[in-house]
Simulated scan of single mutants.
Amino acid sequence: MSLCANCLTLTPDTAGVPGHPALRIVDTQRRRIPRSVTVTLSTFRCSDCGAIWRYREAKDDGPQGWALLATEAANEGR
């Protein structure tokens, strides 16, 4: 699992932190939690290193911002 230099600059779990130019959006989901807020989950893939990132945005106490899910290299051999 080897992240590119741009992915290494992302700060996980911090709201409002921008991504980088090689991130390409692959999915967006909006979930309405009953009696709570709407949560937006956007999934991105880095075109340089294959890393899969999710950006969570919501006005609640849950984790916000970027989270690394996987990389293409980690999924090889499966």
Rank of each mutant, 00 (worst) to 15 (best):
V26G: 05
C49A: 04
R35L: 13
T40R: 06
F44W: 15
I33A: 12
R30I: 09
P34R: 05
T28I: 15
R35I: 14
S47N: 13
L41W: 05
F44S: 02
Q29E: 13
S42H: 03
I33C: 08
V37M: 08
T43R: 15
T28N: 07
S36T: 02
T40Y: 04
R24I: 08
V37S: 08
D48T: 15
D27Q: 13
T38R: 03
C49Q: 01
I33S: 08
D48P: 02
W53N: 07
R35S: 10
S42Q: 14
I25N: 13
P34A: 06
S42R: 15
R30E: 15
V37F: 09
P21E: 10
C46W: 00
G19H: 00
P21I: 01
R30H: 13
G50A: 05
A51V: 01
G19C: 01
A22R: 01
T28C: 09
R45Y: 07
S47Y: 04
L41I: 15
R30Q: 14
R35N: 15
R35W: 10
R45G: 04
V26H: 04
L41P: 00
W53Y: 14
L41A: 13
R24E: 13
R24Y: 06
S47L: 11
S47C: 09
R31P: 04
Q29L: 12
G50K: 00
T28W: 09
Q29W: 08
T28V: 15
C49L: 05
R30S: 14
P21V: 02
R24N: 08
S36P: 02
S36G: 09
P21M: 04
F44Q: 02
H20A: 02
T40P: 02
T43F: 12
R35G: 13
W53I: 02
W53V: 01
I52G: 10
I25Y: 06
T43E: 13
